[in-house]
Simulated assay, not measured.
Amino acid sequence: MEMGVEDTGGWDFLDWVGPDTSTCIFQLLDDPADLARAAAVSRSWRRFVIENEFCKSLCRRICPEVANFTRTVVVTRTSPRASSESSRDADFRSRERDHVVYSYLGGALVSANPSMNCILHCIGASSTDNFPEETVDNTLEPRDRVNHRASYWSSGGQDDTDVPESLTYRLNSDLCIIDEVRIQPFKAYFQPDNPIYSAKAVRIRMGHSKLPPGKESFVTDENENQKAIADENYMWTYTSPEFPMLQENVLQTFKLPRRVLCIGGVVKFELLGRMQKQATDDKYYICVCHAQAMGRSLSPEFMVDTSDPADYSILKYLPGASNLVIEDILNGDAKDSEWHSLVARHRQMRHLAMVNMLLGPVHFMDEDDDVGGVTDDDMYM
């Protein structure tokens, strides 16, 4: 799509083939970079791409969850100037802003950056047999033995093999692209015949909490947090197919049918069906020693508005946020309060993810807590 006015003897390609055919051609583009190049050909091409919202449409094709966004906001470090433009100009400026935001979002959605485990904390489990020894927090540990003791989560026992269980986790960002999930059933090496307590299948849900900011709770040594994972506390924006599990003590990988944009940073592993009966009580259990949600965080360049716990529909773009250093955050003034609070939130979560990986689970700070408690060295990790 390099044909401009000069290549057609003074005719613009868009005028030459007409708007309907041009629209059909542009809608065939499936790479955000191609749309960006097309918008750079000429002013008429740029206006055509912006007015038809091709970048937004492409993002929705890549990740249908993008349709949950009803508005975009560009958060800058300086206060926006008041405008006296007409309503027609204002509509174009709004579409132009969307074009910029969705252009960068599209690039982030198809990025080839390597995946990592995005799980930050355990929110809770549907049941736990012996708490806290068999807590869901154990599933953050990649090993099935720690300090010569077994490390795993165990459900409560059931007579019915169809009773499901679930494990719910907080991801390291409010916006994550998840490609695959991994789960390892636990092999009870301390029981006769070394039984493996796998589920029959696993299904994944992703979404966000409906609780007010700062009110989300996590598993502690005193509380297994079963009430916090009730479905009425969450809005699920994606549900995967059911993936059959093997009764094998290996980290099993389940590739999602497509990359999924998790809006709100919550993922639930639904464990469907039981396969193994425990000899001592003649009941069926599910046990997991490790779980992962593999993907990439889109923060700090992209955040969501969490002021309304029932509505995560505002997509915020922070140009240049990934290039900030600690001095930019600590020395911010009132006019950039939103910018700095959003970036500080991301860096706090990144810091906790690093500590969690190195030292084990840590308690999550509420938004009202003092971000200054994180040291300069911590935030450079």
Score class of each variant (00 low, 15 high):
R145E: 13
D144F: 07
I263P: 00
Y380A: 11
S151K: 04
Q184K: 14
T23Q: 12
I326L: 05
M1D: 04
V202D: 03
L29W: 01
S209T: 13
L29Q: 04
V250W: 04
L14Y: 02
I123W: 03
Y234I: 04
D376S: 15
D31C: 06
P319G: 03
Q278T: 09
R60H: 08
C176G: 00
D179S: 10
C122A: 14
V41D: 00
T70I: 08
M245Q: 09
V74H: 08
C262F: 00
V101F: 01
S111E: 02
L315A: 00
F48C: 07
A108M: 04
A40F: 05
N130R: 12
L175H: 00
G373W: 15
S57F: 08
R350L: 14
V163D: 04
P80F: 06
A353C: 08
R205W: 10
T8H: 10
R149Y: 07
V41P: 00
G157E: 02
S307R: 14
F254G: 02
T23H: 12
H363R: 10
N233R: 07
L175D: 00
S151T: 11
K283P: 03
M1E: 06
E232V: 13
P213Y: 08
D159A: 06
E301R: 05
R259M: 05
M245W: 00
S44Q: 13
F26H: 04
Y238P: 04
Q252L: 05
S313T: 08
A40C: 08
Q278H: 14
F269H: 06
H351A: 14
N130Y: 09
L58F: 02
D34I: 01
D333H: 13
E96K: 14
V202E: 05
M381D: 10
R46F: 12
D366C: 14
S22K: 03
M381G: 09
P64E: 01
D20K: 13
G373F: 14
E134N: 15
N113Q: 11
D30K: 12
E301K: 03
E96V: 11
E2D: 14
R274P: 04
F54H: 05
V355C: 07
D376V: 15
R350S: 15
A310S: 13
A125G: 09
E270K: 11
S155H: 03
G273A: 05
V101W: 00
E96A: 15
V202Q: 03
F254M: 06
A291C: 14
L359A: 13
L256Y: 04
C287W: 03
P241S: 07
D369H: 11
G372E: 11
Q278L: 10
I326K: 06
N233Q: 09
G157R: 01
V374C: 15
T220G: 07
P192L: 11
Q292I: 03
S127T: 10
N172T: 09
S84N: 15
A321Q: 01
V374H: 15
R46D: 12
L342N: 04
V267A: 09
E134V: 06
D31P: 03
D179G: 06
D231V: 06
M1S: 07
V267T: 06
G320K: 05
G9Y: 02
N356H: 08
D89W: 07
C118F: 02
R97L: 15
T70N: 13
D370F: 13
E2Y: 09
S166V: 04
A344Y: 05
D366M: 11
F54Q: 07
N194D: 12
N147V: 07
A344N: 11
K56I: 10
F48Y: 09
I329A: 04
C59V: 01
Y317N: 02
W339L: 06
L140A: 08
D378V: 07
